[in-house]
Simulated assay, not measured.
Amino acid sequence: MTQAVTVYRWDDEGAPQLDLNNGSMLQVLKKCLIDGYGTKQGAGWALNEISADNNNMIFSPASQNWYYLLYDDARNSYLTNKAAMIGAIDGWTDIENPVSSIHYEDWTGRISEDKGANQYLDKRGATWCLIATSEWFYLMQTGVASGTSAAAFIGRLDCAGFDMAYTLIGYNPYWHDNDSIQFLKPGTDYFFRKVKVPLLLDPNTMSSGVLNYLSPNTHLEKKLTPQALTRIVWLDLAFKNESNQLVGRLPNIESAYIYNSSIDIPDNYSVIDGYLFFNSLRWKLS
Rank of each mutant, 00 (worst) to 15 (best):
Asp19Trp: 04
Pro251Trp: 01
Leu184Cys: 12
Asn279Val: 05
Tyr68Gly: 01
Ala88His: 03
Gln182Gly: 15
Leu79Pro: 02
Gly116Glu: 09
Val271Tyr: 03
Thr142Leu: 09
Ile111Gln: 06
Ala83Val: 09
Gln3Asn: 13
Thr225Ile: 08
Ala160Leu: 08
Gly248Phe: 04
Thr167Phe: 09
Gln182Cys: 13
Leu211Thr: 05
Asp90Cys: 09
Leu70Asn: 02
Lys185Trp: 01
Thr93Leu: 10
Pro226Asp: 14
Asn244Met: 13
Tyr78Phe: 11
Tyr213Ser: 13
Cys129Lys: 04
Ser207Asn: 15
Glu49Trp: 04
Ala88Trp: 02
Asp202Leu: 04
Ala160Gln: 11
Ser112Gln: 10
Ala46Leu: 08
Ser24Tyr: 00
Tyr257His: 13
Gly161Ile: 05
Tyr269Leu: 08
Lys194Leu: 15
His103Ala: 06
Asp90Trp: 11
Ala62Asp: 11
Thr127Met: 12
Asp202Ile: 08
Met85Gly: 03
Trp136Asn: 06
Leu157Tyr: 00
Glu113Leu: 08
Leu237Asp: 01
Lys82Leu: 14
Tyr120Cys: 14
Ser280Pro: 03
Lys123Ser: 08
Tyr259Phe: 14
Tyr269Asp: 03
Asp94Arg: 05
Asp236Ser: 12
Ser207Arg: 11
Met206Trp: 04
Ser101Val: 10
Tyr68Pro: 03
Thr148Trp: 10
Leu121Val: 14
Asp202Lys: 01
Ser63Pro: 01
Lys196Phe: 05
Ser243Ile: 01
Asp72Asn: 07
Trp66His: 12
Leu200Tyr: 06
Gln119Ser: 08
Ile181Lys: 01
Ser63Trp: 05
Ser51Gln: 03
Ala88Leu: 12
Asn172Trp: 00
Lys223Arg: 12
Pro226Cys: 02
Ser112Glu: 06
Asp273Thr: 04
Asn212Val: 07
Leu235Met: 10
His219Glu: 12
Ala46Gln: 14
Ile263Leu: 14
Ala238His: 04
Leu47Phe: 10
Thr80Ala: 13
Gln245Tyr: 00
Ala228Tyr: 11
Leu139Trp: 03
Ser255Gly: 15
Arg282Asn: 12
Lys196Ser: 09
Gln27Asn: 14
Lys223Ser: 15
Ile86Glu: 00
Thr230Phe: 05
Asp35Ala: 08
Gly147Val: 06
Leu29Ile: 08
Leu276Glu: 00
Gln245Glu: 15
Tyr37Met: 09
Met206Asn: 13
Lys222Pro: 08
Phe278Met: 08
